[in-house]
Design a protein around this nucleic acid. Structure first.
Lengths: 333, 333
DNA sequence: GTGGCGATGTGTATCGTTACAACTCGCTTC
DNA sequence: GAAGCGAGTTGTAACGATACACATCGCCAC
């Protein structure tokens, strides 16, 4: 593989001139530039990124660490983040953590991340207890869990308020026995605990009965988990006439589960999700959900990270909570 | 940021010994190793990947270039590829091409790819005409389009046979006016043209009438495209009682489109997709589709790429076509 | 007691690129 | 005509890790 030296030799100039051409530096005579470009073309030269990165001390790449790459939610968010980063001249590498604490920490600390100038981390396993571990020398923006006091920017979804609104929406539609399908430990601060709190508050404020059988726990938040949760609600005779789901993916599974049992959505039971993934608009019935403004999340995440990379001496960690809106569709009609 | 030299100084050894510890080389006394590890820990040292890559001439990373990261199909395939690559000690970076020829070529030739030891390219825009451009010095496996004669491995899906089977399945279920929803130029060699050929052959062999209005073209292959295609089929009064969709995503959109028009699937019109994405199992109705054995695709892709990386002097480009099976579900019941 | 061997550790050079300072020229300016 | 300037170009020295060859040492065999 050709190097700058080879190109320099072929063009009859010094390696530095080749570098100057490559980086569009001024003070290169057009004729010289042409000769260098021709030599580059002739030799099929391509710059060695590892060498450039080493020399420059930066890679112009940011990492986006997600629990799973196959989830529509993260796929769609990644797509937006890539677009915003691209606008700013950065590339994005998607990193899979696997949704547990160990892997999220390793995504942060592992040597791999040294390939990135900064990291956007979609946290699901980390808790406030891990905040010390985040005191590392890597510009980072956390999406999801709150890390009070940790020296990182944080973008939170409107978890509590959103789920409150979703639950209230079901109540307004006439539901009386409203179940929730959630995942993870509700006592730990997490997506589930916050959304659960919103549900509980809405139920309490509207004087709804909250029987324990209406809270269905699942370890993961997959389509299959949603489906079996619906089965459980039906088979246990809970008489649920509305279901708040912790994510749209779970909600899709729940709707499928009701279909398995011959229940009609929304005629017999209404379902609401959270995230407004693209698929929610196309399911049958289409899914009522909470839209937490992904575009805003992506824009903010990239913006905050770039600000951090700028190395402003007065930088302070910021905490953002995005807005949301209830998108009413057929599943709660 | 600490370097090997700093660690060496702190541990009272030479940089080389630090390197030896880092790389688990033999002939390091346990006591020395301990001291080095302690120094690494104390200083929070982490290896500089750029330097290591430069020195080693390899990155242990393979690129996976996909048209779009938000598609369930590619997300699910990526997940499998990551798993297989991980088994072999490789990392995967997902690269978005944007589904056009320009970007796919740039994914191959751009300097960025020098960050990867090899590339798995999901091609949709490239055609055989581009084969010369693939004669570059980068180990590569192409998924999708065939590149006859190009010096790259190629994994093809059973496009023609799969769609033939899908169409035949509809015929066996009693459909008589079978439409196809496809994308791109059917005259160019592409996923669409091959799948279209399978549809056409099945229709011909079974003596089915193939009215032009039954072939619906869409430029992209999105949910929205599927939906409007269904609208068109209904609104134009084609009387279609079965629809072959070029992908599951399109099929989901088509089912939604029929729901918009009050048509019931499968009672009034049957729908079949292609890919067997996870969502196909959970839609209502669940989607009959062609399962092209993703696990096999992922396994093969990584295996072929690693074989290529091994630099065997007798390496020859290989062409694989994976198997498939018809997964009958509710949408054609 | 000497040669030799295996275990352990170290200096040097290098991967390919680029920042920086310095150097050459032709030309203007007084 | 000397000083000065700026466009154009180049040499040198890193960035940080590691392959390789070599040095050192303790200990065993004969």
């Amino acid at each position: 593989m050709a190097t700058v030296r080879d190109v320099a030799k072929a063009a009859g100039v010094s390696p530095m001139t080749v570098s100057n051409v490559l980086n569009n530096h001024p003070h290169v005579r057009p004729a010289t530039r042409e000769r260098v470009l021709k030599a580059i073309d002739d030799l099929g030269y391509r710059v060695n990124v590892a060498a450039r990165n080493l020399r420059a001390g930066r890679t112009n790449t940011i990492g986006f660490a997600v629990p799973e790459v196959e989830s529509p939610y993260f796929g769609q968010l990644a797509s937006r983040i890539i677009a915003r980063a691209h606008d700013a001249g950065y590339r994005v590498a998607i990193e899979r953590t696997g949704a547990d604490r160990e892997n999220e920490l390793s995504a942060i600390t592992s040597s791999r991340t040294r390939m990135y100038d900064g990291l956007i981390l979609s946290a699901v396993g980390l808790g406030p207890a891990d905040r010390d571990l985040l005191e590392i020398d890597m510009p980072m923006v956390i999406l999801g869990e709150s890390m009070f006091g940790a020296p990182v920017d944080h973008i939170a979804l409107p978890n509590e308020e959103g789920t409150y609104a979703a639950t209230t929406h079901l109540i307004e539609r006439g539901c009386r026995r409203i179940a929730i399908v959630q995942g993870g430990d509700p006592d730990r601060l997490s997506v589930t605990s916050l959304r659960h709190a919103g549900y509980r508050r809405a139920m309490a404020e509207h004087g709804m009965d909250l029987h324990p059988s209406l809270v269905v726990e699942r370890h993961h938040l997959s389509l299959e988990d949603g489906r079996t949760a619906a089965h459980q609600l039906v088979d246990a005779g809970t008489g649920a006439d509305g279901v708040v789901c912790i994510t749209d993916t779970v909600a899709m599974g729940v709707m499928r589960g009701f279909a398995d049992r011959g229940l009609s959505v929304p005629a017999q039971v209404r379902v609401v999700g959270f995230d407004d993934i693209l698929e929610a608009r196309y399911s049958v019935p289409s899914l009522t959900t909470i839209d937490p403004d992904h575009e805003e999340v992506a824009r903010l995440a990239v913006e905050l990270l770039l600000a951090r990379l700028a190395d402003d001496p007065h930088w302070q960690p910021k905490e953002h909570v995005t807005g949301f809106r209830v998108v009413a569709r057929e599943s709660t009609a």
